[in-house]
């Protein structure tokens, strides 16, 4: 048990505990802040897996973009002044039983399977290799994703302000 393992257990604990609070906390804003810790923990796991560029992208896109977007959604769609920011839950007990069984099955499959591991040839800094494969091997997906982001931008803007046209 060396330093790598200790750091892994710390990040895994941070991720799972705050993910648990994300899905169980009654207050939506608290859930959003716990989601922040979950995303940081996942970025730490990426670093431990040797994906440094991906960890930075995770923090920039998720924490800087998606989480802020979700918080905007929470604040616009809740009456802040009336303190109705709490949210209810439905079907807790059947959901907990079914998801618990599912999680146990999935986790035991993941742990019991004899994975054939092999030391990969991942370079020490991944941004060079990532950029190279983005513009050679995956260039079609890269371009399609660019168009998809443009469509998503236009679509989100036009959906969100459809009412003003009428």
């Amino acid at each position: 048990m060396d330093l790598y393992d200790i750091i892994f257990y710390l990040f895994a604990l941070l991720t799972l505990v705050s993910a648990y609070f994300v899905v169980t906390n009654k207050n939506i804003v608290h859930s959003a802040f716990f989601l922040l810790f979950t995303l940081f923990g996942i970025a730490g796991l990426y670093v431990l897996l040797g994906a440094d560029f991906l960890a930075v992208v995770q923090i920039m896109v998720y924490v800087g973009g998606i989480l802020i977007l979700l918080l905007f959604g929470v604040m616009i769609t809740n009456k802040i002044t009336n303190v109705s920011i709490k949210t209810g839950t439905i079907h807790i007990i059947p959901a907990a039983i079914v998801i618990g069984l599912f999680a146990g099955a999935l986790a035991s499959i993941m742990v019991k399977t004899q994975w054939q591991t092999e030391s990969a040839k991942i370079p020490f800094t991944t941004s060079y290799a990532l950029g190279k494969s983005l513009i050679t091997e995956y260039v079609l997906i890269f371009e399609i994703l660019g168009i998809l982001l443009l469509i998503a931008l236009i679509g989100a803007a036009s959906i969100a302000r459809r009412e003003e046209k009428e």
Binding site: V23, L70, T77, T87, I90, M110
Partner: peptide, 24 residues
């Protein structure tokens, strides 16, 4: 890592099926 991901997946599914609020 696979174990952490399996538990995270299950927690996400639990959040999807139990929460009322669409943002959640």
């Amino acid at each position: 890592f696979l174990f952490v991901s399996a538990i995270l997946f299950s927690l996400g599914i639990y959040g999807i099926v139990t929460r009322k609020n669409a943002v959640m």
